[in-house]
Design a protein around this nucleic acid. Structure first.
Length: 528
RNA sequence: GCCUCGAUAGCUCAAUGGUAGAGCAGUUGACUCUUAAUCAAUUGGUUGUAGGUUCGAGUCCUACUCGGGGCACCA
């Protein structure tokens, strides 16, 4: 809070510099004023004044009863009267007529303005438009000689003047830094980005719908927690002033959702953000969206079937196909083609142990720990000396099984060391009743038969807390002592699911505003 | 945190160590069926920042900033 007034002053003097024009600014102090864009900004501001001088508000208000471009085109009737609005993305002047395209959420539509229809004054307004301006238009539909359904404009309203030039529609905006920092420009310039991110919205909607259709109730549990539990990850810290209380942003909702099972809800789910204080990569963003669901009286096997049904249902509803993530090669952007992934069920289920033997040799578990390390060397798997034996095996799993698995595969019965919160298998206590769903080399979803024994749970949490400096959620353990029904649980990383279904290469392409370091601002004038 | 690649006009990109360029956008003009409109003219740059080498640096060297990819941390 203490910072903002200073920033405001900076912002103001910054703007005044742009306003004051070069002659006045030149003799001023040392400040390396003139931004490269100054001329462009200056011209646009002058146009704002010209609109005002003509009695038009260049930042207008409501433009009611607008229709979406796509709907207008789909419901085309010759000479029908329509009202459309959007951002001007192309202008082609032809002397006494003008063709233009506006872009709205649904797509583009062409406008046609003629001097003999609009009159001198109305037509002259078109000279004061720039690419990027928001405009509303009313007129009648017609089809051009080249067959494009268009609006013959009878009246144009400027809805908002753009002071800055927008990126070229043809060349797009390809600088990744600009794309992620200024996503609004990315959305204007790159239609595939609009498509991917609106697909994300549809996917989340269909996930919710599926869960509700299957009797699950959506709940919202705390994101600020005094003990960050439910996963092994470093949390972010924050602080509540009035309570004088340090809090963590949650790393998982799990422990609260299980409290709800104790409380008697039988099918609950939550779709929301988790926060993990980790490195950023193509597959990791510090805040990410997770679906977690718990189902009383179910086990991991039923949860696997639920996940299979969920993902195939969502894929079919949103994409109308089970062959997902494919892409044609695009020589323009040098993007190679990508095979789509076939999600047709049923998806195979394989025990962790069998998958390791399949790839590292049937004798893997008969080897000594040293023998396993030697085998890893043969297989080209790098190990750190500190790794314990089960971690060595898990390296094999990650590099040879997970990384290479393209089609959906459920890996079941993981060693208990890997999954401390899950329930041990009744016949083989060295493994737990869990699955891990792998698609396209990534873990998409883990599922569990949840541990509901409060005594064992306490032992595990104590052991886990020993390593990390993590506290133990005593209230959660108390809740378990009141009795949690046997239950199955799942988590699905929504960002990664969207990547899978849309064929996105980076998690940043499916998150509207991925975390970035703050940009370094040019502090041209200001009090430094 | 480590390795590696990158940053040139508003956007997309050029430029054997020797005068920083093009297309689009912008500006001015012509054009009433264009759609990457066309035609003519034209503005626009402290080459990410700070040092260094050199007669001379966009180009070579060092550090830093931001970003991409990889590794590590982490499901």
């Amino acid at each position: 809070m203490a910072r903002s007034p200073v920033q405001l002053i900076n912002a103001q003097s910054f703007m005044m510099d742009e306003n004051s024009g070069s002659p006045a600014a030149a003799p001023q102090a040392a400040a390396p004023t003139a931004l490269p864009t100054a001329d462009l900004l200056q011209l646009r501001r002058a146009k704002v004044d010209q609109w005002r001088a003509r009695g038009n508000d260049p930042f207008g208000t409501a433009f009611p009863a607008t229709q979406l471009a796509a709907n207008v085109i789909a419901g085309y009737e010759e000479d029908q009267s329509v009202r459309v609005a959007g951002r001007l993305v192309a202008i082609r002047e032809m002397g006494k007529s003008v063709f233009a395209h506006i872009l709205d959420q649904s797509g583009r539509i062409q406008l046609y303005a003629q001097k003999n229809v609009l009159g001198d004054e109305g037509f002259a307004q078109w000279k004061l438009l720039d690419l990027g301006d928001w405009v509303g238009a009313e007129g009648n539909l017609f089809t051009t000689k080249t067959g494009e359904k268009s609006v013959r404009v009878s009246a144009l309203t400027l809805l908002s003047k753009t002071l800055r030039p927008i990126p070229s529609e043809w060349y797009g905006l390809s600088d990744p830094e600009a794309r992620y920092r200024q996503r609004y420009l990315d959305l204007i310039a790159n239609p595939e980005v609009r498509d991917t991110l609106s697909k994300r919205s549809q996917i989340v909607r269909e996930v919710r719908r599926f869960m509700e259709d299957h009797g699950f109730m959506e709940v919202e549990t705390p994101m600020m927690q005094s003990v960050a539990g439910g996963a092994a990850a470093r949390p972010f810290t924050t602080h509540h002033n009035a309570l004088g209380l340090d809090l963590y942003l949650r790393i998982a909702p799990e422990l609260y959702l299980k409290r709800l099972l104790v409380g008697g809800f039988t099918k609950v789910f939550e779709v929301n953000r988790n926060f993990r204080n980790e490195g950023i990569s193509r597959k990791h963003n510090p805040e990410f969206t997770m679906l977690e669901a718990y189902w009383a009286y179910a086990d991991f096997d039923q949860m696997a079937s639920l996940v299979e049904s969920l993902i195939t249902t969502v894929a079919e509803r949103v994409f109308d196909t089970l062959a997902v993530g494919g892409r044609d090669a695009d020589p323009a952007t040098n993007t190679p083609a990508r095979e789509s992934i076939d999600l047709t069920p049923p998806w195979p289920r394989e025990r962790y142990r069998d998958a390791v033997c399949r790839t590292a040799g049937a004798d893997w578990f008969a080897l000594t720990p040293e023998g396993r390390r030697a085998r890893c060397a043969e297989l080209g798997i790098e190990l750190s000396p500190a790794m314990e034996d089960f971690e060595v095996t898990n390296q094999v799993f990650e590099k040879l099984v997970e990384a290479r698995q393209v089609k959906p595969l459920f890996i079941t019965h993981l060693p208990k060391e890997l999954v401390p919160l899950a329930k041990q298998n009744a016949e083989d206590p060295s493994v737990v009743d869990v699955f891990e769903l792998i698609i396209n080399g990534q873990e998409i979803s883990p599922g569990y038969t949840e541990l509901n024994d409060p005594i064992v749970q306490r032992e595990r949490l104590v052991a886990q807390a020993g390593e990390e400096t993590q506290l133990i959620d005593e209230d959660f353990l108390t809740a378990l002592e009141y009795g949690m029904p046997p239950a199955g649980g799942i988590g699905i990383g929504i960002d990664r699911l969207v990547m899978l279904l849309t064929g996105a290469e980076s998690i940043r392409d499916v998150i509207l505003f991925p975390l970035m370091r703050p940009a370094v601002r040019e502090t041209s004038a200001a009090g430094q």
